[in-house]
Nucleic acid binder design. Structure first.
Length: 373
RNA sequence: GGUGGGGUGACCGAGUGGCUAAUGGUAGCAGACUGUAAAUCUGCCGGGCUAACGCCCUACGUAGGUUCGAAUCCUACCCCCACCA
């Protein structure tokens, strides 16, 4: 039910197939983020149209609204959203990091002050697992302690060690609730410190076996070369027969950099957030859709793209939608950006299967960095 | 023709002697965004020089005047609005 097969490798890069209760995921793959059980602004059909194979939801946000009981009573996230494909729920661990002004961390768990109404909510490892079990995604994530990217070894070690202790509790609760339709993936922490990363990995594997494993705590303020170094450190030490999920990454180049270092799955809000904010990703660089340069243009946003936006609307119209602040613009650029990342994953996979990944990837990145993006 | 009100930067609109190159807002331009407290946030927005601090020029209908100093006070004129004839 939770199988992963690697079809072919190219250096550290892998082309694989992940089988989940709600379908298959061909990797490498980008997973759009649907925090509130919606990929912001998009219908389930829109998301399907991008070729996305799996989407995310968030424990913390769905616990606040509408509450896991409501989702469960409606038949789980798949029924709730009408998205029938694979889903993954994040544990709320990232909110430990992102809601830093509104929470306090203790060994027992984390107290959040709801960003919605200010009420105090407690999330524990057990609670995060219980909520996710009721939400019913294919993959549940362990509740982790994310620390900022530049954290000292002491701080990073504390977060890493706590993540491991919490992993025990997550696993125990998950085992009690197990119905065979949801799997649990652990998350490696350790900040930017190699020794901590390796200890995290070792500790995590010792608690296995796992059907997949995530790398967390990257792209949270550390320089890019540092993230690459951590990935290079982990890649050879990770089990080859389960998927590796790099959480919260990334931008287009991050996908290729990650794939080259053995990452199979990615998720990131940038595609949709940038889409809403008017930045579109193109092979030739990125474009501010609000920019005066697009005024009156009859060209497609990206002539090489096969998404709904690029095959239907001229640039001048997309710019107009942003100028008049119509919600259609937010949707159309979000669709394009997601398709851009999904397609990048598809292209990488095809090149890995063809044995042409390294050259293709090197050229793509060279063009990309030459532009200063 | 008379009386009253008013003319401020692309637009709307504050300001009623120095802290004013001129509050705000809109429009415009540019940038940021990485497991979503974000359809958000930031910067620029008279001209010229400067990497920058800053300096110079031109500006509050027009032309004069008062004053050390005027968008702000005075005079005349032009234009707009309201009412009266």
């Amino acid at each position: 039910m939770f199988e992963f097969q690697v079809q072919r490798t190219a250096g550290a890069a892998r082309a694989g197939t992940l089988t989940l209760p709600h379908g298959e995921v061909k990797t490498p793959a980008f997973m759009p983020v649907g925090t509130h059980a919606v990929v912001r602004g998009l219908s389930a059909n829109d998301v399907r149209g991008t070729g996305a194979q799996i989407i995310l939801g968030n424990t913390y946000h769905l616990h606040l609204r509408p509450g896991e009981a409501v989702v469960e009573a409606m038949g789980g996230l798949h029924r709730f959203t009408t998205w029938s494909g694979p889903m993954l729920t994040d544990s709320g661990g990232f909110q430990v990091f992102s809601l830093h002004g509104l929470r306090s961390i203790a060994e027992h768990g984390v107290e959040f002050q709801s960003h919605i109404d200010g009420t105090t909510r407690t999330l524990t490892p057990e609670g995060a697992i219980e909520i996710q079990a009721r939400l019913g995604a294919d993959i549940a994530m362990a509740f982790d302690h994310v620390v900022p990217g530049q954290s000292s070894p002491e701080v990073a070690c504390e977060g890493m060690a706590r993540t491991l202790r919490w992993l025990d509790r997550c696993k125990a609760r998950h085992s009690e609730l197990a119905d065979g339709r949801q799997t649990l993936w652990p998350i490696i922490q350790g900040g930017i410190h190699d020794e901590l990363r390796l200890r995290s990995l070792e500790g995590t594997l010792a608690r296995g076996p796992w059907t997949g494993i995530a790398i967390g705590g990257l792209s949270v303020g550390e320089p890019k070369p540092v993230m690459h170094r951590v990935l290079e450190l982990l890649s050879p030490a990770l089990p080859a027969d389960i998927p590796r999920y790099l959480m919260g990454v990334g931008f287009p180049a991050d996908l290729l950099e990650g794939i080259a270092r053995g990452v199979d799955l990615f998720d990131c809000v940038a595609a949709t957030r940038n889409g809403r904010h008017g930045t579109a990703w193109l092979p030739a660089g990125r474009v501010n859709v609000r920019g005066a340069g697009l005024k009156g243009s009859t060209q497609p946003l990206d002539p090489t793209c096969d998404c709904e936006t690029c095959t239907t609307y001229p640039r001048g119209y997309l710019r107009h939608l942003f100028v008049v602040e119509d919600m259609l613009g937010l949707r159309l650029i979000s669709i394009h950006n997601i398709r851009f990342l999904v397609r990048l994953g598809e292209q990488a996979r095809a090149h890995i299967l063809n044995g042409t990944f390294e050259g293709w990837s090197r050229e793509w990145l060279a063009r990309h960095y030459a532009r200063g993006d």
